[in-house]
Design a protein around this nucleic acid. Structure first.
Length: 288
DNA sequence: GCGCAGGGGGTCG
DNA sequence: CGACCCCCTGCG
């Protein structure tokens, strides 16, 4: 495959650091020149921003313009979303000003399922490492500019990988969960294609929860960050609990904040944009 | 410097 | 509600 390039000038709501470090993805790495390189589907891509111009360059399966528009969610009006959310209160407004360049990527459903199973009780450097090793071990190799990259393996490609192999890659106690989920998807106990086309969010969530290693938090991350693209869900982790308590609930001990109470509050405040509001708040609380 | 707790994007039994 | 693998961090 040949290298392709696509350039966008005068882009709005698009900052590399906000997009790649806000916690939604695990396979993008910063280069020395400030650009980021990553693998998604069967594409290897470098993204660079100069002023208000963004240059996408890489090896793509298909037309780079279409691929970029889809993956980076370029047809959604983030200006409008931010405007709407900013009117809610000063807190969310501040967090949006901080992470104004966030976009929620359209990431592969299967990859998100495994990635967020790995994320449980884990830290980001290690999560990235495990995912990297799984790709190196079982994905397809793509060479670009003298470097080797690896696609995230399909369920079929992981079919014969045993529990102990995941353990060797450093997955820890998540080894069984990954193995079982691979088998469940292969056996169509959960049909990802049907899931992708099912408009009923609660039903999709229930199906995700049947997978090994997928609890409420992981299910919500999958719903929000994959091509399922549900902006109304509100994943609650320690950081979100912290920031919501600091801003709105103000209990002495944030760990005592009730989850139901949080969900209700998020829904009342942010409605069907709760998920993206979560991203602005999460990113702001963690980085700022 | 080195060694050792402490804790981390939760889930499961 | 406690255990869970393993890497990284911070502190002595």
């Amino acid at each position: 495959m040949e290298e392709q390039e696509y350039k966008i000038e005068n882009i709005k709501s698009f900052e590399l650091q906000d997009i790649f470090d806000c916690g939604q993805c695990f396979r993008w790495n910063k280069e020395e020149d400030g650009s980021y390189t990553g693998v998604f589907k069967e594409n290897v891509m470098n993204v660079k921003k100069n002023g208000n111009t963004v240059i996408f360059k890489g090896i793509c399966k298909g037309d780079i313009k279409e691929i970029v528009e889809d993956y980076f969610d370029l047809n959604r009006n983030y200006e409008e979303i931010k405007k709407q959310l900013s009117q809610i209160d000063e807190h969310i407004k501040t967090s949006i000003e901080y992470g104004q360049g966030i976009r929620i990527l359209n990431q592969d459903l299967w990859e998100m399922i495994i990635s967020f199973i790995i994320s449980a009780n884990n830290n980001i450097p290690r999560i990235k490492g495990i995912i990297d090793k799984i790709a190196k071990g079982y994905g397809k190799e793509i060479e670009w500019q003298g470097k080797k990259y690896y696609t995230f393996p399909t369920a079929e490609e992981l079919k014969n990988v045993g529990i102990e192999e995941y353990r060797k890659l450093g997955a820890g106690f998540r080894d069984v969960r990954i193995y079982e989920t691979v088998q469940m998807v292969l056996n169509k106990k959960v049909d990802l294609e049907k899931m992708q086309n099912n408009p009923n969010t609660l039903e999709v969530r229930e199906q995700l929860l049947t997978l090994s290693g997928v609890g409420p938090k992981v299910a919500d991350c999958i719903l929000l960050f994959s091509t399922l693209k549900r902006f109304e869900v509100f994943p609650i982790d320690v950081w979100v609990r912290r920031v919501m308590n600091d801003l709105y609930i103000k209990k002495q001990d944030e760990t005592k904040v009730n989850k139901k109470e949080l969900e209700k509050l998020a829904h009342e405040k942010f409605g069907n944009l709760a998920g993206i509001a979560q991203q602005y708040l999460f990113y702001w609380k963690r980085e700022a």
